[in-house]
Design a protein around this nucleic acid. Structure first.
Length: 865
RNA sequence: GAGGAAGUGGCGGAACCGGCAGACGCAUCGGACUUAAAAUCCGAAGCCUUCGGGCGUGGGGGUUCGAAUCCCCCCUUCCUCACCA
């Protein structure tokens, strides 16, 4: 038996043992070995897209964190569900296949194999029997099945919509995937283009998606982001008659109380009425403006936000609150790109007196500005040259004069409704979800186009609609779907009527598979349903969901939407899928810049004492923190580190860096500290000089040590470490648990012979979730019997958290002047007299005004003059 | 511009409720062991100091016997959304 700590050898052996004994297999209700007495705990990682570059230490941060939690919960007696799988369909996987010249299927299999290998290297306690791959027909069969539920409820529809088109990617993208007119993936320019697309009616769930955020234990910042994305606004819809046209111009406003101050109208360049209402005289300039707006990317529009642009259409609208002969009621209609076509009705009434944007526009084009809201006393208004947008009192507004903004709004709406020219309305920024892609690597829509032009779902029992193999799967230059080229696949028959039908050739976006994967994990092998009711009833909802904050909106909103649809369909029993959400921080890296602020590649940096310098030139460099980047050569590969130091050190370092939620830099120089701690722990248990597998005091049948003297001191040290660990699990700053364990091992090293077998056992159990391989090895050498992963989690005995003697800080005027020892149960007056002696020199010649002894008895403070 | 998170030694970070600022680790320095080095072990260390003490948690003010922690103002960094009527 080896006496040295050799992590790789130990780790491989224990990983095999865990696998051989199916230690991490979660047992479902109804299966053999299920224990109904244990409570359940479902801890889920956001499953990765298996990229070609392999696992990143940032992924591993979350995975190690959840693994430690899962292992602890298991030791605490929970039935733990802790699964892992692959989000394998979608654009990035297809792009990767194209650039590497591989088939997506083959490339995906290669990448998942690599990810699986890397995850297993870390010794993560996943139940690998539940592994899923969203691009596996056994999985996407049920994605299609669930799509059918949305389809039959009318939540999926086809529409000609202006969509984001990315020429580079040859695909349409969802609103959420386009940032400032560029694709989220790859940062390519995008343009708007009308195309017939499948949409999901997520807006039907807007209100519930908003309301149900309340009960969730999620970071407030994520909830806020979702609320803002949903963007609820309450107001009114108002119809303006158009001079010389039968059509009405409908606008949405949150401030119907300012209707009397509307001096012009603005419609978006894409508005359907623009062509119709433009007068001959204005035709040329309007056409030019509209054409220009269409070619402008969203980025250009945003850049131009400082100066408003627009053109008069020549048309006039009638403000319904003014009499037909009132000149205030005749307002010009302009077209301007500061009004967006996709929000509200794509048209606004412009109230330049009380809206910043309208104000700017009115000033730009010299349009009239009227004040209809008087600001409350003390606030500046139009008379001070300020556009007042807050709440005040209605003035110059006929029937609502004198009312507060709140009352004026209500009365204005009532008035509009009685005249049938408007009504209360709530709008949302959230738009329906553009759900189809003209790409290859995704779930085919399980839909058939019949000869009569109608569209029907492929019956559930004919699923899956398999994605056919294609040699050339690249998107067509005209943007048509690659599957459309598979003529023999497209032509099929409706299984119900045997009549000819054509398959839909679009595929679902990459998000589809991740909209329900946590449910499939509950019952991954089920081939008669996506998951059984019993399994969902037992495991749902996810108790802890851990992943990056970058999924704040898209994935988490889509997943909640599908889950609610399933809830309505009676498929799941909870309204929300993820009860507690936690975002792990980003793992950043150090980078180095010279005096001019230029970044220097990490392999050209050397340490100079406590500073850094450029190798060769010796030029001094400053250390800064950045994202990891290949160009800076500061990307860390877990494989190398594990090969060099072992998985336990890797796990420990990931957690020791700092609180799980914080972003923090990876510092290779700090890793030896964690390794040293494990080596020191090893030497506490194993005598490197001796032949025994374990030191005699830890061997089975070792002499029992009474808890007194140094053993008592160690008992206290252990109790403190265990208590600290418990707190650190609550706060998810596991770095402090490790720090507490280090302190204990330092204490143990100093009085090794006084440490008992029992103390050794409890310490190993506490360390086991963090460094499972080494603890398993030492546990075995102690001949404790069984695996440590199945042992019970140790808790601190409060009795040993209390010291006989406490350190009593003594302050004079709040400044620390001495620290004295006092018996733990000393009375306040005893403490005061002990303290008085200790700071006698500071009290000399002073008058003691007050002696402060806080209720917790933690210190004494003399207030003197 | 709006919203969110955060600013503590040379570095990563501790400090549960307002009560010893800097736990734990890295780097640094000293010592032991060694022919020597590495490894290991032991120890020192916030900054300044005339060795009395003074100053210290981004800056300024406030509350308090006492503030990293609570309140007000300001600065910086990161993230997210940005003409949403």
């Amino acid at each position: 038996m080896t006496q040295a700590y050799e992590p790789r050898e130990i780790e491989l052996r224990w990983q095999k043992r865990w696998q051989d004994e199916s230690v991490f297999r979660a047992v479902n209700p109804g299966e053999k070995g299920f224990d109904p007495k244990r409570p359940k705990y479902y801890v889920l990682d956001m499953f990765p897209y298996p990229s070609g570059s392999g696992l990143h230490v940032g992924h591993a941060l979350g995975y190690v964190g959840t693994d430690i939690i899962a292992r602890k919960k298991k030791m605490e007696g929970f039935n733990v569900l802790h699964p892992m799988g692959w989000d394998a369909f979608g654009l990035p996987a297809e792009q990767y296949a194209i650039t590497t010249g591989k088939q997506p299927r083959a490339a995906t299999d290669e990448n998942t194999a690599n990810f699986r290998r890397q995850l297993q290297l870390i010794g993560l306690s996943y139940d690998w029997s539940r592994e899923i791959d969203t691009s596996d027909p056994k999985y996407y069969r049920w994605t299609q099945w669930l799509f059918n539920r949305l389809f039959e409820k009318g939540l999926a529809y086809r529409a000609e919509v202006p969509v984001w088109w990315c020429e580079e990617l040859k695909t349409v993208l969802a609103n959420e995937e386009v940032i400032n007119g560029r694709s989220e993936r790859g940062n390519h320019p995008c343009v708007r283009r009308p195309l017939k697309q499948w949409m999901l009616r997520i807006t039907a769930y807007a209100e519930r998606l908003l309301d149900d955020l309340e009960g969730l234990d999620w970071p407030e910042s994520i909830k806020t982001q979702q609320r803002e994305w949903i963007g609820k606004s309450v107001g009114a819809e108002i119809q303006f008659a158009l001079e010389g046209h039968a059509e009405e111009l409908v606008v949405f406003t949150t401030r119907p109380d300012t209707l009397w101050g509307a001096t012009f109208m603005v419609v978006a360049p894409e508005h359907a009425l623009v062509k119709k209402i433009t007068t001959a005289a204005q035709r040329a300039s309007v056409d030019a403006y509209v054409a220009k707006a269409a070619t402008k990317s969203e980025l250009d529009r945003t850049d131009a936000s400082k100066t408003k642009t627009g053109v008069f259409t020549g048309a006039y609208a009638r403000n319904p609150v003014f009499a037909a002969d009132d000149p205030r009621g005749r307002v010009p209609v302009w077209v301007a790109d500061y009004v967006v076509s996709t929000y509200g009705t794509g048209a606004i009434m412009s109230v330049p007196g009380h809206d910043e944007r309208d104000h700017a526009f009115a000033q730009m084009f010299d349009l009239p500005i009227r004040e209809v809201v008087r600001p409350p006393a003390g606030e500046k208004g139009l008379s001070d040259g300020v556009c007042f947008t807050g709440e005040g009192t209605a003035i110059d507004s006929g029937p609502i004069d004198g009312l507060s903004t709140l009352d004026a709004t209500a009365k204005a709406i009532a008035l509009l409704e009685s005249k049938k020219v408007g009504k209360a309305r709530t709008t949302y920024k959230l738009r329906d979800w553009l759900f189809s892609r003209q790409r290859y690597w995704g779930e085919p829509f399980p839909l058939l186009h019949l000869e009569d032009g109608s569209v029907v779902a492929v019956p559930d029992d004919s699923l899956p609609v398999l994605l056919p193999a294609m040699d050339d799967f690249k998107p067509a230059t005209d943007g048509s779907a690659p599957l459309a080229r598979m003529k023999e696949w497209v032509a099929t028959t409706d299984p119900r009527t045997k009549k000819p039908a054509r398959r839909d050739t679009d595929t679902m976006p990459g998000w589809a598979g991740s909209c329900w994967y946590w449910l499939r994990f509950m019952d991954p092998a089920n081939d008669s349903a996506p998951f059984s009711k019993e399994a969902e009833q037992y495991w749902g909802p996810v108790d802890l969901y851990v992943g990056g904050a970058s999924h704040a909106v898209m994935h988490l909103l889509y997943a909640r939407f599908w889950h609610k649809v399933f809830f309505d369909a009676g498929v799941v029993h909870t309204k929300e899928p993820f009860q507690k959400l936690f975002n792990q921080g980003m793992v950043t890296a150090f980078a180095y810049e010279d005096a001019t602020g230029r970044l220097v590649s990490s392999d050209e940096v050397e340490t100079r004492g406590s500073g850094f310098a450029k190798s060769g030139t010796g030029e001094p460099l400053t250390q800064i923190v950045t994202k990891m980047a290949k160009s800076l050569k500061n990307v860390v590969n877990p494989d190398d580190m594990i090969a060099e130091h072992g998985a336990d050190t890797f796990r420990l370092y990931e957690m020791f860096m700092g609180p799980l939620a914080d972003s923090k830099p990876w510092n290779t120089r700090d890793i030896p500290g964690c390794k040293r701690f494990l080596e020191r722990t090893w030497r506490v248990f194993v005598d490197p000089e001796g032949d025994a597998p374990i030191r005699p005091q830890f061997a089975r049948g070792a002499t029992w040590l009474p808890i007194e003297g140094e053993t008592l001191a160690l008992e206290r040290s252990l109790a403190r470490a265990l208590a600290r660990a418990e707190l650190s699990f609550q706060n998810l700053n596991l770095n402090t648990a490790i720090a507490a364990y280090m302190t204990f091992i330092n204490d143990a090293t100093k009085s090794l012979s006084s440490m008992s077998r029992d103390q050794g056992e409890r310490f190993l159990r506490a360390l086991a979730p963090f460094a499972p391989h080494m603890c398993e090895e030492l546990w075995e050498r102690m001949e404790t019997g069984g695996l440590i992963v199945r042992a019970a989690w140790p808790t601190a005995d409060p009795m040993y958290l209390v010291e006989d003697e406490i350190d009593l800080p003594v302050q004079v005027n709040g400044k620390l002047r001495a620290t004295v020892k006092a018996p733990k149960d000393a009375s306040p007056s005893d403490k005061e007299s002990i303290a008085r002696v200790a700071v006698a020199s500071h009290l000399e010649g002073k008058e003691i005004v007050k002696v402060v002894l806080p209720p917790n008895g933690r210190l004494v403070n003399f207030v003197v003059k």
